Amino acid sequence: MTAATLPLLIEQGATFEHELDVEDDGGPVVLTGYAARMDIRPCAGSATLLHHLDTRAGGITIDGPAARITLLIPSAVTATFAWTSAVYDLLLTAPSGREQFLIEGPVTVKPGVTR
């Protein structure tokens, strides 16, 4: 499966939450036992890590039977984002250890006005 492209918009100073329902041609993909991790970097190949999410350290939750992945970045964290554009990808790890990229794309941080 090739990763789907999905642009993400994060509003600086607000909680970012995005739910993904994972499906293939046969319908929902049961994700029980899966893990996931996601890096946000200035560009592909960059050594600079702007933000990291994963199922172990936090920021990504997987509801296996519902085939749903939720990404979450608290407002206290988005308030610190001093960058406005970057790229990301989300890597899924199956219980067997097989890894595949699910989504990728640009990330835009919309600067906040209200403090």
Rank of each mutant, 00 (worst) to 15 (best):
M1E: 03
T2K: 03
A4R: 10
T5H: 06
T5I: 10
P7Q: 09
L8M: 05
L8A: 04
L9M: 03
I10W: 00
I10H: 00
E11T: 04
G13P: 02
A14W: 08
F16T: 01
F16E: 01
E17R: 13
E19Y: 00
L20E: 05
D24P: 07
G26Y: 13
G27Q: 04
G27A: 05
G27K: 09
G27H: 08
G27Y: 06
P28V: 08
V29D: 06
V29Y: 07
V29G: 11
V30P: 07
L31A: 11
L31V: 10
T32P: 12
T32Y: 11
A35Q: 15
A36Q: 07
A36M: 08
R37F: 11
R37A: 10
M38P: 03
I40Q: 08
R41N: 12
P42K: 07
P42I: 05
P42N: 12
P42A: 04
C43N: 14
C43E: 15
A44Y: 14
A44G: 15
A44D: 14
G45D: 08
S46G: 04
A47N: 11
T48E: 15
L49N: 10
L50I: 11
H51M: 04
H52K: 12
L53S: 11
D54C: 13
T55Q: 12
T55C: 03
A57Y: 13
A57H: 14
G58C: 02
T61H: 01
I62V: 07
I62F: 01
I62E: 03
D63V: 04
D63I: 01
D63H: 08
D63G: 07
P65E: 10
A66H: 08
A67I: 06
R68H: 01
T70E: 12
T70C: 10
T70I: 06
L71F: 07
L71G: 03
S75N: 02
A76M: 02
A76S: 12
V77K: 02
T78Y: 01
T78F: 00
T78R: 02
A79W: 00
A79F: 00
F81P: 01
A82E: 11
A82N: 09
A82T: 14
W83S: 02
T84W: 01
T84Q: 15
S85Q: 15
S85C: 09
A86T: 08
A86V: 07
Y88G: 06
L91K: 13
L92Q: 09
L92M: 15
T93Q: 15
A94Y: 09
A94D: 14
P95G: 02
S96T: 15
R98C: 07
R98N: 09
E99M: 12
Q100V: 05
Q100W: 12
L102G: 05
I103A: 10
I103H: 06
I103Q: 08
I103F: 08
I103K: 03
G105W: 03
G105Y: 02
G105M: 05
P106F: 11
P106L: 13
T108A: 11
T108V: 14
V109P: 03
V109N: 05
P111F: 09
V113P: 00
T114N: 01
